[in-house]
Write a protein that binds this DNA or RNA. Structure first.
Length: 617
RNA sequence: GCCGCGAUAGCUCAGUGGUAGAGCGCAUCCAUGGUAAGGAUGAGGUCCAGGGUUCAAGUCCCUGUCGUGGCUCCA
């Protein structure tokens, strides 16, 4: 496996080189930046000067040129030059970006600038001092500075396709020149490339922004503003269903709902420390009546500490568990906004536990069990990352407290049979945390929520309880949102399900299609609707003057779980043959069932939140 | 925030300086139907907003708004 991975890496690297070769053939003035291997291919950053703009329309031309290079199957020739000669080469070749890289290599043995923080970028400087020699690769007429490895000749590069072009700053710094980044996809053979392209195609079909439009779930408006989606009746059902479930999973363990206002004096965040850290992300609100400086709340924990601190607490009162599903406001950079994944008004299914140190494990246990059940119910694989502190002094709280807390987190994770991995140095400065990573139906992993221990806010807000011995002690805070933000969760969930929601979340659970508009049909349909509503079901009647075939098609497109057609047969027999959405059943054929029994079964499926139907099972 | 691309009917989109279009949806009428599109007719437009160029701008230029791809992967 590792050998194949190495081979694929060399292929992709070689393709970046070939891309550069082709670009040089087409635009001899091109200045080249870096051309690394990435997840599913490679890219190359290229500066063609302010005049030339490469667009996707140029891809066929570039691909054709690349194909020529590949066809000629020229050997990749590797050679080394002393660093000073290499710099001279870059000057002669008029490659200022390469020259800059080489000068960095000469100076520090790495191209990663110190101020970029190599560790943070996930790269390690590969020399601890100045380098003496650097390597080059050459394919026929084009020579490129490159560490390699490359495949032996240009013919052995597998299957590729240029994917997109975008702007990128030289060395990721917006103060630097903007270059054009050409991305390519590359795989060992055409089959794997095909599979990847199909996956991208599938992801496009499932795009929550597209489905949100098609299924009438949420809308955006120029007049409301960027990053401020509004939810339609259907979308609001989705929100309510998932939020209610998330709440239920905690309310049964003693969490109590609280409510806090959406604007607050900024003093609260000065006390919590958020003002100093996130001040520029807060929306400011001006009072016309008082001199108060208010902000829209960006989070809820400081408020919850105020409720906790509103009365003296005994060790007997702990844990105190608050739950609030509420909207927070954050002024994100406009370029970061998109669909529901990143918004400026985000609704958190937030909760905070205030407990004693010795209660951490038990409390984490409750939350993990809830998360486990939530993600099992929505059918997403869950694994967690235990994020611990490292040995630096960047953390607040005593080392003993940290050690104990980390152990308790781990115990709880093990007790819940969670797939986990541990990572040091990933903790927040105020406490260790558990990150939830979920995998969706097409294999993409998303981080949705975290459980975080917090030793800092209790301190900053002077929280306390009276211990058994009469002394004042500081509680620990546990932050948890199971869904994360509802908007972001829905963006993932809509794509995970491709809009085919299970009965419990489906905005419309049953659609009743009338065969005609006769009085008896209308009356029967109304009776069924009445019964369904009494059972808490969401049923709509399609009594439009259209053909049955057309109405069924409409129900299919709306991805309604159950469709029943009602005409004379059903009225006289009292039975229906439900049309079951394909993903919900393993049985190809549907069977007739009494209408009351049908409704009861669906109602039961909704309350038990199953993904598959038991009908005709 | 920065760079690229885009915004035309409710939706998806065509329209390359000279009379605003199609399909779907919607409305009306005919057909009264049986498990993925029955037929006909019709209504529907601030061509994102503001400014400019031009005899003439949906179309070209500038600014803004909104959307979208990227700006993290290090020779």
């Amino acid at each position: 496996m590792a050998e194949q991975d190495d081979q694929l890496y060399a292929m992709r690297h070689s393709l970046a080189h070939i891309l550069a070769t082709a670009v040089q053939h087409l635009w001899p003035e091109a200045k080249f930046g870096v051309g690394p291997v990435v997840d599913s291919g490679f890219y190359y950053d290229i500066d063609l000067g302010p005049e030339v703009k490469i667009s996707e329309e140029d891809f066929p031309k570039i691909e054709a040129e690349m194909a020529k290079v590949i066809e000629s199957n020229l050997p990749f020739e590797r050679f080394e030059k002393p660093i000073d000669e290499a710099i001279q080469w870059a000057q002669e070749a008029k490659q200022p970006y390469k020259e800059e890289l080489l000068n960095d290599l000469k100076r520090s043995g790495t191209t990663v600038a110190k101020d970029l923080n190599a560790a943070e970028l996930g790269t390690v400087a590969d020399g601890d001092g100045a380098v003496e020699n650097v390597s080059f690769y050459k394919d026929g007429d084009f020579t490129d500075l490159c560490r390699g490895p490359h495949v032996e000749s240009t013919g052995k590069v597998g299957a590729f396709k240029l994917h997109r072009v975008s702007g990128a700053y030289w060395r990721g710094n917006e103060k630097n020149a903007q270059m054009q980044r050409i991305y390519g996809l590359a795989f060992a053979n055409p089959k794997y490339l095909r599979i990847h392209l199909d996956m991208l195609e599938e992801a496009k079909k499932r795009d929550h922004r597209k489905l949100g439009q098609e299924l009438d779930l949420f809308v955006l408006s120029d007049m409301v503003g960027s990053g401020l989606p509004m939810f339609t009746p259907r979308g609001t059902i989705l929100r309510d269903e998932v939020a209610n479930f998330s709440n239920l999973l905690r309310q049964r363990s003693g969490f109590q709902k609280v409510w806090t206002p959406h604007i607050t004096k900024k003093d609260l965040y000065e006390a919590s420390g958020h003002w100093a850290k996130f001040g520029d992300e807060l929306f400011l609100v001006k009072s016309q009546e008082t001199s108060d400086e208010l902000v829209m709340k960006p989070m809820n924990c400081p408020h919850h500490t105020r409720i906790y601190a509103s009365q003296p607490r005994s060790y007997r009162d702990l844990p105190v568990r608050y739950l609030e599903t509420t909207t927070d406001y954050r002024d994100e950079k406009t370029g970061e906004l998109g669909g529901l994944s990143r918004v400026r008004a985000l609704t958190q299914d937030d909760s905070h536990v205030f407990c004693r140190n010795d209660q951490i494990e038990q409390e984490i246990n409750i939350l993990l069990a809830a998360a486990n059940e939530l993600y099992a119910t929505v059918g997403m694989d869950l694994r967690v990352r235990l994020s611990y502190r490292d040995d630096t002094d960047a953390y607040l709280g005593s080392p003993e407290l940290w050690a104990s807390a980390q152990e308790q987190l781990k115990n709880a994770v093990i007790a819940n049979n969670l797939n986990y991995f541990e990572q040091t140095g990933e903790a927040a400065f105020y406490g260790p945390k558990i990150d939830f990573m979920v995998t969706d139906a097409i294999g993409r992993e998303h981080q949705l929520a975290t459980v975080q221990l917090d030793f800092v806010q209790p301190e900053r807000f002077g929280l306390e309880y009276i211990a058994e011995d009469g002394s004042k002690q500081q509680p620990v805070m546990i932050h948890c949102a199971l869904l994360g933000s509802i908007e972001r969760f829905l963006s993932v969930y809509i794509e995970h399900t491709a809009g085919k929601f299970p009965v419990w979340v489906a905005p419309e659970q049953i659609r009743l299609i009338s065969v005609n508009q006769e009085e008896a049909t209308v009356k029967f349909a109304d009776e069924v609707a009445w019964k369904a509503t009494a059972l808490g079901l969401r049923l709509t009647i399609d009594n439009t003057n259209e053909s049955v075939g057309k109405k069924i098609r409409a129900a299919e497109i709306a991805k309604v779980p159950y469709t029943i057609v009602v005409g004379e047969k059903e009225i006289s027999g009292g039975e229906v043959v439900p049309r079951i959405r394909k993903d919900m059943t393993v049985q190809p054929e549907s069977q007739a069932i009494g209408i009351d029994e049908f409704l009861k079964t669906v109602a039961h499926e909704a309350t038990s939140r199953v993904q598959k139907t038991s009908l005709q099972g």
